[in-house]
Design a binder for these strands. Sequence first.
DNA 1: ATATTTTAAGACAAAAGAGTCTCAAAAACC
DNA 2: GGTTTTTGAGACTCTTTTGTCTTAAAATAT
Lengths: 153, 153
Amino acid sequence: MLLSKSCVYGLRAALFLANQEEGKFVPIRHMSDKLEISFHFLTKILQQLTAEGILESFKGPNGGVRLVKKGNEIPLIEIVMAIDGPQLLTECALGLPGCGVQNPCPLHDKWAETRDSIRDMLENSTLTELVHKGKQENLRLTSESGFDILFND
Amino acid sequence: MLLSKSCVYGLRAALFLANQEEGKFVPIRHMSDKLEISFHFLTKILQQLTAEGILESFKGPNGGVRLVKKGNEIPLIEIVMAIDGPQLLTECALGLPGCGVQNPCPLHDKWAETRDSIRDMLENSTLTELVHKGKQENLRLTSESGFDILFND
DNA sequence: ATATTTTAAGACAAAAGAGTCTCAAAAACC
DNA sequence: GGTTTTTGAGACTCTTTTGTCTTAAAATAT
Ligand code: SF4
Ligand code: SF4
């Protein structure tokens, strides 16, 4: 898998938050219900995002979690870096240690292209952008079986 | 990681074989030594490739393993499919089950592009192609620490 | 103050991936 | 025939990822 499960869940939660009223704290429980992710697992993941300064949290009633920046200022790459780290963009297809431009393996050129296209995708898509696209096209964020349309609900 | 460890090892071994005299059986032990991969682990992986008809094996002295087809007829994708299966090209970035064109998630378009670029890379590079590139540019296939240059050795 | 709601932290368990080991089976050589 | 060399098959262990659970701490409300 390109992204870890944690990262995918983090992205889904971030998209969910970007679709909420700005500045409002959203309880993790609410998100875990809507997104069909284990509450405790999601909590752990969002704690990482909080630690990285992407989310702010607030305890107690009316508490929850919210985006620090506006959704249109957060490219997907920020979330991916916070959870999966930079390996995705530094690691190589053949998994050789110490790979680099100065001593590349035979796959380097093609892989570098591909990696760039992955980076482009993650850098040039913001949360808000995807949310808007989701609303316009009535897309879903949860599983097929869930019938729980995130956008426009 | 994009590819599993098994898949990476399988690819490295396949490149190694493509660089050997055509039709010669190469003992797995020899490869595991050269490529710095655990013999038993590599054996298990190559057994998969044999089961998939990508390799032929022969037991006993002078036995070993060899490519069924010529290296220039084997795109990387064949090895990847044999070991990691088709998930890489069917799975989605957000990991939603039942994803598809008819009911896509908001990331679909950009991810589909990226996935295509991965498929292109794997379909349009043959083993021989990479071996030639490796020879021309004196590239390596093993780790930095190993100093064990595969090509031209 | 006390009870309630929420995140924080971390122990714990289950599942998957990576790697090791043992023994069997086939082929060759003597 | 017996020994050696090799792959085949599968049990087993170790590690990482994924997921669950428990307890603490902060905030609120009554
Ligand atoms: S040289 Fe390029 S393709 Fe090879 S391991 Fe390094 S980054 Fe990956
Ligand atoms: S719709 Fe596209 S991006 Fe979304 S899960 Fe399916 S394949 Fe992936």
